[in-house]
Nucleic acid binder design. Structure first.
Lengths: 187, 187
DNA sequence: TGGTCTTCTTGATATAAATCAAGATTTTAA
DNA sequence: TTAAAATCTTGATTTATATCAAGAAGACCA
């Protein structure tokens, strides 16, 4: 369980004893390659922490799959529309390899404000950080060409490019697999 | 002041008497055309509500201005990095016409959790909604061409296209003014 | 009022990236 | 172990969009 507590500490600025308390609500589980963490339209009733493996967030648009993001070891994964607003999940989330997770389920998650002091504030700050990250990603589409977006992503998460089929990464970067291949061959 | 309370009610699900309390912290101010609400690198110490006019959020990249977003009547405006994390503002925010605002300043803003019950939760939900909006915008760059992005934006905020110079909108949509002009001429 | 600046459009051309196609390599599964 | 499927690359071609250029219309101002 120590790995989980380390990750929690990295994300949430709370005292050590509360880290332990928070960690105690998370339950270990695994997904096999191809399993769905969430299917679009279903409810997502968990917030999960990825211990190992990759989860692809995607949607099918006019017959082709558009990959929004790939989450990996050290990332949290959930569907905000479900978890925060009790709405149907907006995207598919599928394991690209076998995945190890620690999950807190909605029943426990909803009681965290009563258990962890200032939980709502901590969560607000967590969401604010996500907001800044998404803003930067939008800005990258407004200001960079394909090669620059590749370089930025490669600098940010180099291991992805070994561990995940490249056509998913191409989609996530807003380009075709052929374009990504040609960009890579020039470096 | 009733307009402000209406807008607050639309955004924040709190009882009427608290709406009044919250509204009492906001101060009216105006900006002239061309004035900066925020300059990149400076601290933004206010959360503001736009009563009238348009504010353009942009950054200069390699000599050219990239417009990230244009906020209008009914929108909130601030810099999250400053307001939440006390960091320098990330973008320029400039009035495109004369603008009327109601602003709450950081000193008061920071005390809201003590004044408005469940304020942190309300704010968390507000940020979660922003998160979903930004996600959708990212998805539009992954799945749509220029004409589709134009149509989506035109359906969402048609009045913008009368009231704001089109080259700013083009930049915000990730295309050149010429491309936007040609797309428009086909409709 | 006239003149300058900004905005917007339109045409010609260039460029980035998509599409189509095929082959090579690797992975998966029977 | 082998066949099938998935992945990745490379080349040829097409398409979407950017760039360059010029002119028209409107806004702003001295």
């Amino acid at each position: 369980m120590t790995e989980l507590t380390n990750f929690i500490q990295a994300y949430f600025p709370i005292p050590l004893n509360q880290v332990e308390t928070l960690a105690s609500y998370f339950k270990y589980k695994t997904l096999d390659k191809g399993d769905f963490f969430l299917k679009s339209g279903s409810y997502c009733n968990e917030l999960s922490f990825i211990l190992d493996g990759h989860l692809r967030i995607f949607e099918t648009v006019e017959g082709r799959e558009v990959t929004q993001w790939i989450s990996s070891r050290g990332d949290f994964i959930t569907d905000i529309a479900s978890l925060v607003f009790d709405q149907p999940g907006r995207r598919n989330i599928q394991a690209l390899k076998s995945v190890e997770l620690y999950s807190i389920y909605k029943e426990d998650y909803d009681r965290l404000p009563l258990i962890i002091p200032h939980w709502e504030r901590i969560e607000k700050q967590f969401l604010a950080k996500c907001f800044l990250t998404l803003e930067d990603r939008i800005f990258s589409f407004l200001s960079m060409d394909s090669a620059q977006r590749f370089q930025q992503m490669f600098a940010y998460k180099p291991e992805l490019f070994n561990e995940v089929p490249l056509h998913y990464l191409a989609s996530m970067l807003g380009m075709t697999p052929e374009t990504l291949s040609r960009i890579r061959s020039k470096v």
